[in-house]
Structure formats: structure tokens, C-alpha cells
């Protein structure tokens, strides 16, 4: 499903049916999935349609830009670096290209959305929550539902820490796709309660294509990449 399509396109599989109908005076984009039918009329002379995974924080409506992945607790001794693999939910974006500019047409997902609170109600953040198992190598995934996050855990503090969740800022996410959907990130632990998560811009193995950054395509101002500072613990 992911890739670039010419102006007339139709895609269907067991989960979703996408189509642009140009038989009328105005082209119509339709999507049928999860028992829902979406129809949008396209004005303007677009060149192509792009379908790719996007930052998984947009559905069912934009409530947060933080992604939280909960996983079985891992114990990390001092000054140790450990790479683990987690799964994250995939949301699919449909973009139309006009004069080399990308605009969002549709976003959909086959994964149910849950939200959570990281930190206190007065000082925390709402997160898109996802539960993943812990893997020591790249796990098999359903391309349209799950991606693989390669997470390097680095413990800089002098004590052993326990980690069972990671929170990321989607403004700095860089998603790649190919055989699977993938991201690479680092979680640097500075104290038993404080860690920083950042994303790498290098593609993970098997994911040569870079997704369109949703925030860039929507012309949102995004600051320099600093990652997200987790200050409310890691368990």
C-alpha cells in the first residue's frame, strides 16, 4: 500500500479500499475501512498521491503529540548500553502532491487508540499509549498495523534503573518504511527518574524509504531536535 501513485489510482486489500474516481467533473477520493466510508472531493491539479506511515498520534483526533510505549520491565545496570526492539502502532497518511508541495488528504489506522497520562494532571502530558512486548531482535510485524522501534537504552547514572515505558515527542519522529515500518531512537537515562528520548534520522535496516513528516507537510513550526525529557519516571 505504501508508495507513490499516479493521479488515477485504486488500491484494495482485505483491510482497506482506496480509490480516486475521476469519472465526474471533480475527482473524488474514497476510503472504505473499519466499516467506515470516507469521501472527499479534490480540487486543484494534483500531480500524484503518496501513501506512507505517519506519526501515530493523529487519531481519532489530535489530542496529543506524545507517544508512550509500555513494555515489560527491563533492568539496566549502571553505564550499560542495551538495544531493544519494540512495536509501535502504525497510522497511514494519504498525501496529495501539488507543485512539489505535500498536503494531507486522509489519515487512517487499523489499530485502536488508547490515551494515558504521563506525570501528574497539573504538570504531565497526555500520551498516545501503546503496549508492546520486548524483543531482542527485529520482530515480525503486520506492515499496516505495527512498526518496529529500535531503542538504544543508555544508563548514564551510577545506579541500576528499571524501565518499563518510554515517551517520545512525535514532532521529531522520523519514520521509514520498506519491508516493514521502522524507527530508531535512543533513551538516555540520567537518573532513576529522568531520561531523554531522541530519534535518529538514519534509516533502520530494511526500511530505505523515509516517510513524509506530517508536521513539516502541514507547515507547522518545529523547533530544533532536542527530544523529550521524561521527568516523571520510567516505570
Amino acid at each position: 500500500m505504501f508508495g507513490r501513485y499516479e493521479r488515477d489510482f485504486e488500491y484494495s486489500d482485505a483491510d482497506v479500499k482506496l480509490r480516486i474516481d475521476r469519472s465526474g467533473t471533480i475527482p473524488v477520493y474514497t476510503r472504505d475501512c473499519n466499516g467506515a466510508h470516507v469521501e472527499k472531493y479534490l480540487t486543484g491539479d494534483y500531480n500524484a498521491i503518496h501513501i506512507c506511515p505517519v506519526e501515530p498520534v493523529n487519531l481519532p483526533e489530535e489530542i496529543t503529540h506524545h507517544l508512550e510505549i509500555a513494555f515489560p520491565e527491563i533492568v539496566l545496570p549502571p553505564e550499560v548500553k542495551q538495544t531493544i526492539y519494540l512495536k509501535f502502532p502504525v497510522e497511514t497518511g494519504v498525501f496529495f502532491e501539488i507543485h512539489r508541495e505535500m498536503d494531507v488528504l486522509d489519515i487512517f489506522s487499523f489499530v485502536p487508540t488508547r490515551f494515558s497520562l504521563y506525570g501528574r494532571p497539573d504538570a504531565g502530558v497526555i500520551t498516545r499509549w501503546y503496549r508492546s512486548d520486548l524483543y531482542s531482535c527485529v520482530p515480525a510485524t503486520d506492515l499496516h498495523r505495527e512498526g518496529v522501534l529500535e531503542l538504544a537504552l543508555v544508563n548514564h547514572c551510577a545506579t541500576t534503573v528499571e524501565i518499563s515505558r518510554a515517551v517520545f515527542d512525535s514532532h521529531h519522529m522520523t519514520i521509514f518504511y520498506g519491508e516493514r515500518v521502522g524507527m530508531t531512537a535512543t533513551m538516555e537515562v540520567w537518573s532513576p527518574a529522568i531520561a531523554q528520548t531522541t530519534f535518529a534520522t538514519t534509516p533502520p535496516p530494511g526500511c530505505p524509504n523515509r516517510s513524509i513528516d506530517l508536521y513539516t507537510s502541514q507547515k507547522f513550526p518545529v523547533g530544533p531536535m532536542k527530544g523529550y525529557m521524561m521527568e516523571s519516571g520510567m516505570t
Binding site: R114, F115, L117, W129
Partner: peptide, 8 residues
Amino acid sequence: YTYVLVHP
């Protein structure tokens, strides 16, 4: 229910 928070 989607909007019910997991934590708390």
C-alpha cells in the same frame, strides 16, 4: 473506550 485514560 478510546478516551478513557490507561493511567490513572
